[in-house]
Design a binder for these strands. Structure first.
Length: 296
DNA sequence: TTCCAGGTATTAC
DNA sequence: GTAATACATGGA
């Protein structure tokens, strides 16, 4: 089994930050770089000065599937220039230089974020990996590498049972994942069709699924479909908005939704990821001692 | 041990 | 509309 490799010329692309920023859950850092699966193919990515080196099982002639996943055509400077230039966003941009949004497979993204609710990122990774090991198909890997599995498709999961899924330690989320898989497998939810819809309409389709609310829907719309105004409001971003933009005001959820919808502009989804990553990694520090929802 | 995690559904005012 | 709670599991 031979490897094909390709060098992508890049500038201002922080690969490690991007793969480890809570938007995708299957990347593992090894001695030679980041190992993962794109489009059902084993991939090893490593950062070099001015380029990203990609290795995959031979033969590969066309590398557009990698370019698309990594969104290599995106002009990041243009995106960053659209952010509001308040001190917090400037801090996020400064401390997360080169952070990017990926373009993931819709089903994998949807299923992964259904599994994400009230779980830490490390645990989400474990559950997703367990799901792939149990239900995904083994895929070719280089000699000496650990076995790798594709992300199980909706049809494969639709044939399992809630009880089987629970063996992957997903707990109550199994009763949401199974019907979602069945909806997609049966065609009652057409994930490809969402690409043609407006943001609001696509979101309405997704939240029809049990276990999918606005936050998860927005993650999928942003990370898989590239809706640039989808703005996931999770615990971190909510805290950030409250403390940074409404200090001492205790704004309602409605207010915060409205604010996030208008203040951050045409690339608000990207802005959200910068804010999320900066806050979650402590590069923007929030009120230390307390993590309670109620600001004082 | 206790608290809480890239939430959502349900129930109650 | 807003508030409280259950839901599985395990990291910190």
């Amino acid at each position: 089994m031979k490897l094909s490799s390709h060098r992508f010329a890049v500038s201002n692309y922080a690969l490690a930050e991007t793969l480890n920023s809570g938007q995708a859950f299957r990347w593992r850092e090894g001695p030679d770089g980041w190992e993962g699966v794109i489009d059902g193919r084993w991939v090893l990515l490593s950062e070099r000065p001015g380029e990203i080196l990609c290795r995959a099982m031979a033969p590969v002639r066309d590398w557009t599937w990698v370019e698309d996943y990594l969104q290599l055509h995106v002009n990041l400077e243009r995106v960053l220039a659209i952010f509001p230039s308040d001190p917090h966003m400037r801090m996020a941009v400064e401390t997360c230089r080169g952070l990017r949004l990926l373009r993931q497979d819709p089903w994998e993204c949807l299923a992964s974020f259904i599994l994400s609710s009230t779980k830490q990122i490390t645990q989400i990774k474990q559950v997703v990996e367990s799901l792939c090991t149990c239900f995904g198909r083994a895929i070719p890997v280089p000699e000496g590498s650990l076995p790798a599995y594709g992300f199980p498709g909706p049809d494969e999961l639709a044939r399992t049972s809630e009880q089987e899924l629970r063996k992957c330690k997903m707990g109550f989320r199994a009763k949401y994942l199974l019907p979602a898989a069945q909806a997609v497998a049966s065609g009652s939810l057409d994930l490809e069709e969402l690409r043609k819809l407006e943001l609001g309409e696509a979101r309405q389709r997704l939240v029809k699924l049990a276990g999918v609310g606005p936050k998860i829907a927005n993650c999928v719309l942003l990370f898989a479909y590239g809706f640039c105004r989808a703005f996931p409001l999770d615990v971190w971003v909510l805290r950030a908005l409250r403390e940074l933009y409404f200090p001492g005001e205790n704004p309602s959820m409605k207010q915060l939704e409205q604010f996030s919808d208008t203040y951050f502009g045409e690339e608000s989804g990207y802005a959200q990821q910068y804010l999320f990553h900066a806050v979650r990694t402590g590069r923007i520090s929030l009120d230390a001692g307390r993590t309670r929802k109620k600001g004082r």
